[in-house]
Design a protein around this nucleic acid. Structure first.
Lengths: 230, 230
DNA sequence: ATAGATTGGTATAGAATTGGCACATTAAAT
DNA sequence: ATTTAATGTGCCAATTCTATACCAATCTAT
């Protein structure tokens, strides 16, 4: 029988769509914590179990992530809602794009960077060298290091494009693979390449610097391909 | 707006959102020092540890940078958040960025393009060859030709980035210079390069194709520099 | 150059909050 | 009558928040 009343789908499904709408609507933003299950229950006038069922559905829909003892967090980024680029970019395609941009960034850095920028670069190198403990902190420092390189290019458009690359890099799609790829040995190897790269830049050795960056990314590409089951 | 915005996201995630909003809002500007952790704690009515947790999140998001004994500083530049990249990109910087991306696009095209895409490329070549009448129509056809090349790379991210380049190209404040640069002779010269480029791609001659594209853009850069009064 | 104030870094323990879970009850649909 | 879904309650376990105290780096004023 048709029920014409505003009363939406009852029960968990109704709460599910309400919270979902609130997230898409931007009422709850990326990485923000939702109210507790008890609060949500009171707010929507339902039992806590119902809220839990709705949140479970949202978790299966990859819109929220529950953390025991902590809360329920939004893992849905409206920034990428319109730019579905992040969704449809594979790790391989990302590396391929970095392979296009970063070697040329190095060219600009070698020919344009002044002492002040070199210092910032050395600082970023120090940071990434000291971030050997775990894959996450290394990955974060690595992003910052490469972004610093882009900043040294002095080209706003290239910087902007590299920021977009970093956005996609940190978009969590394949981050779970990091732990497989970034072993302690790999981190040290990448850091050797980082060190040699900065030295070449300081020497203003264009060919060596560009070559090191290209090799660096080719290696990353190779490591990534090794992860894909054939 | 309803008073429905009870939001009041509690905890570190809430403080994180509030401070982030203040930074994006411009309340704290680039390189400015935030209030001390103790002050922020009092200001938001939470414990200092909670503020520290929020600041750590902000640091991981590359929005602030902490300095031992000194303070916490904003390292988020609102200049790059706005979509006015087009405004602040000079013709030279645009060419420099194309010089980074397009030769590598050619690499991918030579190794990946199938017959169907080659046909589309020949079609785009035909269009640009026939657009010799005036600078505007040539410029438009030239944009389409290079975008077709990007499409043949099969890489969504590269295609997306080249679309952004084309946005800026057509936006530009220097379009009036086109009439000075794009003489009839120049147009024919560029089109010769276009033709040779496509032939090299069809021959699957990687070195020649990449070289032609690089030379093409170097020439465009040179022509542009010739226009800038010294 | 020195001393005091300010700042971030760290550690600790207890209180409060949060999600996970079990169980009995109620209501509605089949 | 049986099944299914939502409710209400109570408790557990993981995490976070709070409130302190103290350390170490930096800045400022003398």
């Amino acid at each position: 029988m048709m029920e014409n009343s505003i009363k939406a789908t009852s029960g968990a499904a109704g709460i599910f769509s309400k919270i979902r709408a609130a997230i898409i609507n931007g009422e709850y933003t990326f990485n923000e914590r939702l109210p507790s299950e008890r609060d949500l229950a009171e707010q929507y006038g339902v039992a806590r179990g119902t809220v839990r069922a709705a949140l479970d559905q949202l978790e299966r829909a990859h819109m929220v992530r529950k953390k025991f003892g902590s809360g329920t967090f939004v893992c849905y980024d409206t920034r990428f809602e319109h730019e579905d680029i992040a969704e449809e970019t594979s790790p391989l395609e990302l590396i391929e794009t970095r392979l296009a941009i970063e070697p040329h960034i190095i060219r600009l850095v070698v020919s344009n960077a002044n002492n002040r920028e070199i210092r910032k670069l050395e600082e970023a190198l120090e940071n990434v060298l000291h971030a050997r403990q775990d894959p996450n902190s290394f990955s974060s420092a690595d992003e910052a290091f490469h972004l610093t390189l882009a900043n040294c290019s002095q080209n706003p458009l290239l910087i902007w494009m590299y920021q977009r690359i970093n956005d996609i890099r940190s978009h969590t799609q394949w981050s779970h693979r990091k732990n497989n790829i970034l072993t302690r040995d790999k981190i040290d190897y990448y850091n050797d390449q980082h060190t040699e790269l900065v030295r070449a830049i300081i020497r203003r050795d264009m060919d060596s610097a560009v070559g090191r960056m290209t090799e660096h990314l080719r290696q990353a590409k190779k490591d990534l391909l090794g992860q894909i089951p054939l």
